[in-house]
Design a protein around this nucleic acid. Structure first.
Lengths: 190, 190
DNA sequence: CACTCGATGTCAGCCGCTGACCTCGCCTAT
DNA sequence: ATAGGCGAGGTCAGCGGCTGACATCGAGTG
């Protein structure tokens, strides 16, 4: 019951993720083959593809958890909260988790900005997240297109704030950058 | 000077695009090989890749023109126009062109919604478009993060409106949907 | 001690994509 | 008019991402 440790070492999945990030940083995404990742993790190429749908997905393992966190936070907002307030609650919810892992985020981000294929994957994760939040708002009684537009604005603020947050030299916390972003967007739409 | 018609038939690039869209619609993106596209166009696989960087790009030929159109429109807005007004001008500029090609857009869209890889490509095109508009706003003297947030809001409205515009049964023009979207977003941010 | 079951290994193969090199046919200059 | 430039296309070989089918191992279960 406790075993389940594959054939040899435990946590093959985690070893693959670690090996992949290391290699992507060391020599670049394109210059890394899946066989090399698997070898460094002490596994085979075929096993890599059992854990991750493709070579890119290994960098996006946390996105499901992020989505769950944000959706839960938006759903838990008080009934009388406005769509924007519920969305803002989702943003606040992820703030702490991000601030704890800034260096990891920078490392990962440096790989992604260097490769268009990875940016595509990041963008579709963001789009799915947007849809999930829009669905949550709809369940809260928000109509269309208001729900989609609000979710889009919220994720837009998140995205812009995230990019500022990982920029070299930036020391403010992501929550502060997101608050500032919401205010700025309000001002611009006024 | 006028010749330049490849080795046999003229417009190989266009024939490839037509063959690709037809096949993607007929049997799906995944079930279509590049060799088949090339064969239907009377060319070879290798030639396909000389015209298009990859199998997906053939569906996104028009995006460069779209970007140019929107950037020019935003840049041409009067000096005293607000960031939001300049961005709205970019939206208006694409309205007519889209309305003229609604059936083509629906056909193309049906292929894209059926395939995540194609959605990724669409999203990165939208992201590049967003960056281009943000850059235009910056040239107009708008600071950061206001420029990025405004561009993101504008493209967000465009995206949501486009999806409503291609939905089956929808008859309103895209310009009207975008105007409505901007108003809705304003209301939600208030 | 079989037996099941989930995780991994092995192997063969398709297809997207690329580099290197060759061919064809129009165009221009001498 | 002929030579050579040049751009579009063809041919071939090969890498690497990804998959299906099947074998194997190790741990828990009866």
């Amino acid at each position: 019951m406790i075993g389940c440790m594959g054939r040899w070492e435990p946590n093959g999945r985690g070893r693959l993720a670690q090996a992949a990030l290391d290699l992507y940083v060391e020599r670049g995404f394109d210059q890394t083959t899946v066989a090399e990742i698997a070898e460094r993790a002490g596994l085979t190429e075929r096993t890599f593809f059992r854990h991750y749908a493709d070579k890119r997905e290994v960098l996006f393992d946390g996105s499901a958890m992020l989505q769950q966190l944000m959706v839960d936070a938006a759903a838990a907002a008080p009934d009388d909260a406005s769509p924007l307030e519920a969305t803002a609650a989702a943003l606040v919810a992820v703030g702490e988790m991000f601030d704890e892992r800034r260096e990891f985020a920078r490392r990962r981000h440096s790989v992604i900005v260097a490769n268009p294929e990875l940016q595509e994957r990041e963008l579709i994760k963001l789009a799915r997240l947007t849809e999930a939040i829009a669905a949550t708002l709809r369940e809260r009684g928000v109509g269309e297109p208001a729900a989609s537009l609000t979710a889009q604005a919220g994720i837009g603020v998140f995205h812009v704030s995230f990019q500022r947050w990982v920029a070299p030299g930036e020391t403010r916390r992501i929550g502060e950058l997101m608050r500032e972003g919401v205010e700025e967007l309000r001002a611009v739409m006024r």
